[in-house]
Write a protein that binds this DNA or RNA. Structure first.
Lengths: 255, 255
DNA sequence: AATATAATAATGTCTGATATTTACCTCAAC
DNA sequence: GTTGAGGTAAATATCAGACATTATTATATT
């Protein structure tokens, strides 16, 4: 049972999106665990000082993400992490705002990227249009411009996300491009954990540049390999425990 | 502009889920195209004979799936297919109910499966627990029992979906298991298009059996190969146009 | 002609009452 | 003691109507 003490904060007269983010935060951070009962609507109304309507909208958003399950008469209970819809854009936003992201989530999202992203780059090298390329390049330039200024870290993250997302889009496959949604939480977690050493940053930028170049030159194999190198750098920065899963047996990534 | 004639049907006093399905159907089937304006709430209320509340709930569901965009003052417009959240469970259900599914969607979902599913089986062969295995086997037995009875086609589809979904789950990766959501529309489209010849069915079942066996025996490579063979059979049944994308360059699938 | 202003039309929100579902408790019957 | 029927309470779901907000469009005004 989630106790009244643990109710999240929100600015007065917050809109439904803000309320949803606040409530989602308490679940994603683990303060409300699977099976816990969420306070009833009227209590939430009173706590946040908003109408029941807004609370219901916020809870409907959480319900659509698989974070909670609501049934008339019983109440609202928190769902297990395996029920969460990780690919909902709302989830992406909320996850990327956590100060201490779910370690299991970070690891498993990264395991996915490690397996999938080289292949996505391969697709992008085959299918990217000039416009796709322009967007990848623009994001890359943004990364370079903001790399060495700690005050622009947030902008740097945005460009980093945009870079990888543009590659997912350039695959021109409706399914793979959806997976770009996962990038933001993964990249934010990376930046938070990494050491911001200048030599590492420059090395990372150079690896990104090679991906861009390979896609531009329509070289799928080179794009795959370059992406593997980007992710290898990311893996060491994340200090991932355990062995990374191999997409192809027998291929070793040398960081 | 979507014209009043083209409004979908729904049983009297339909609940919000039914209304959402009916409205989604008209979009997914292409009768309302990108950029069209959806009738305003009050007209929908009158047409379906329900309260504004239900209409708003139904539209909120569609909005959460990226099918429509609503803005106060302007109205509700249909979004482009690239905006749709294909991995929302609602979308999976709605898509699988279309009599003539979006051809682009079928092709691209299948392209994804062709690239990803062998790798997922590999993961499953490494990570599957006894319980996972039991669920895969149970689904397989269900497929066998219902294979040769046209009256049980619906049950057969359910078992087919359950078989592949159980493998995605057995990967024990939170991201890959989400992709199991895509299976139902893909498999329904397959069954609709295939020719239901007894020899093909038996062959398909045998290929499924080999996947199950490889996962049981913890043989990742065999599981990958067996899954490639299942998908190759599926590809010929789907009569896919164009070359299937290769996950690994240089590996050819021989149906 | 350009800009400010008002009217209009749509979605968004609030409020309070009511309906429906579920869980739990009580009490009788076997 | 267990089972079943019934009743009560508590929570979410729904309804109806008024009002607020936003975006567009028409209309004055300079």
């Amino acid at each position: 049972m989630s106790d009244r003490q643990s109710l999240p904060h929100a600015p007065a007269n917050a809109d439904a999106a803000t309320l949803a983010a606040a409530l989602a935060h308490t679940i994603l951070s683990g303060r409300w665990a699977c099976g816990d009962t969420v306070p009833r609507e009227l209590d939430l109304c009173e706590h946040f000082g908003v109408s029941r309507n807004r609370i219901r909208n916020a809870l409907a958003t959480l319900s659509a993400c698989g974070l909670i399950e609501r049934t008339a008469g019983r109440g609202t209970v928190v769902c297990d992490i395996s029920e969460w819809h990780l690919l909902d854009p709302n989830m992406s936003l909320w996850l990327s705002r956590l100060e201490t992201p779910h370690p299991r989530l970070v690891n498993e999202v990264f395991a996915f990227r490690l397996a999938a992203e080289p292949y996505v780059s391969e697709l992008a090298a085959r299918a990217a249009t000039a416009l796709d390329l322009a967007q990848i390049e623009s994001a890359f330039n943004g990364m370079c411009d903001t790399a060495h200024d700690p005050a622009q870290r947030s902008a740097h993250i945005d460009h980093d996300v945009a870079f990888h997302d543009a590659i997912y889009r350039a695959s021109h496959n409706l399914v793979w491009r959806q997976m770009g949604i996962l990038l933001r939480p993964s990249i934010v977690a990376l930046i938070q954990r990494s050491h911001h050493r200048v030599d590492r940053l420059d090395d990372s930028l150079e690896r990104h540049r090679r991906v861009l170049e390979a896609i531009r030159m329509r070289q799928p194999d080179a794009a795959r390999e370059a992406t593997e190198h980007v992710l290898a750098r990311t893996a060491t920065d994340l200090e991932l425990s355990g062995r990374p899963p191999e997409l192809r047996p027998g291929v070793n990534i040398t960081p």
